[in-house]
């Protein structure tokens, strides 16, 4: 059974990484084929060259953690700015509608609404404090 050099090269890669053993068939092919011999030599030479750079670099976990935290903080800040812009544009929209209503002659009712909210706002304090207590599970 004859195989082309490309198939042998795949097998040689497996042999180099210790996934397959060198069989007599491959040994015979290497003796006869100069291309595959050169391929194996190049691979081994490259492995030796890379071994020089294969040094253990100590990884500072706290540095990695702080990098992740800073990325999270930046993303949160960005999200907050976007939310603020959405809020501002919504507020402008609401004010525009109120202004149009006031222009159409409903300004008197809006003023009454403002006055009633002014006097009712302190009562909302009770609801907010109760809500906070419930949220905190106290």
């Amino acid at each position: 059974m004859s195989k082309c050099c490309e198939e042998y090269e795949d097998i040689l890669i497996d042999i180099y990484y210790g996934e397959t053993e060198m069989s007599t068939e491959i040994k015979n092919h290497l003796e006869n084929c100069s291309n595959c011999r050169e391929f194996l030599n190049e691979m081994e030479g490259l492995g030796d060259q890379l071994a020089i750079f294969d040094t253990d670099i100590p990884i500072d976990c706290s540095l990695v953690e702080s990098a992740f935290t800073s990325v999270d903080q930046k993303e949160e800040k960005k999200r907050n700015i976007i939310d603020l812009l959405i809020f501002m544009s919504t507020a402008i929209g609401i004010f525009f509608v109120i202004f149009v209503l006031a222009y159409k002659g409903y300004g008197k009712y809006l003023l009454y609404g403002q006055i009633s909210v002014f006097f009712l706002a302190p009562f909302s304090l009770i609801a907010f404090l109760k809500g906070r207590r419930l949220k905190e599970g106290m």
Binding site: Q114, V117, F118, A121, P122, S124, L125, F128
Partner: peptide, 8 residues
């Protein structure tokens, strides 16, 4: 409302 809601 301003400023009662801010106080709350």
């Amino acid at each position: 409302n301003v400023p009662s809601n801010l106080i709350v």
